[in-house]
């Protein structure tokens, strides 16, 4: 069982308190009706599946109950960084 650093609790907490929430930084379109079917399909279903660092959503469901984002290496299962919802992926150009 891994430990995950919750950016809200500011603590390393056991994995069993968390739930996984899929790829991060996919915002729901402000006006879905303006998207054509292909664009909507991309929003709904198309996800990266990288070998290596992956930005993804987690929720400290049995802790502070907040969703947050994390960069996790899919090869080593290591969390490189976790950060609050709404913040840019660390290291990304603003």
């Amino acid at each position: 069982m891994i430990l995950i650093h919750c950016p809200y609790c500011e603590e390393d907490r056991p994995e069993v308190e968390f739930t996984y929430g899929g790829e991060a930084h996919i915002a729901r379109p402000a006006d879905p009706a303006a998207l054509n079917d292909r664009e909507w399909e991309t929003y709904l279903y198309i996800r990266r599946n990288p070998r290596g660092p992956h930005a993804e959503r987690w929720r400290h469901a049995h802790g502070c109950a907040r969703f947050f984002n994390a960069v996790r290496d899919t090869v080593t299962d290591r969390f490189e960084v976790t950060y609050k919802t709404g913040e840019a992926r660390p290291g990304d150009a603003k």
Binding site: G21, A27, R28, R57, R59, A65, R66, F67, T85
Partner: peptide
């Protein structure tokens, strides 16, 4: 619902 509320 929490997901939409917190993240969208």
């Amino acid at each position: 619902m929490e997901d939409y509320l917190q993240t969208e």
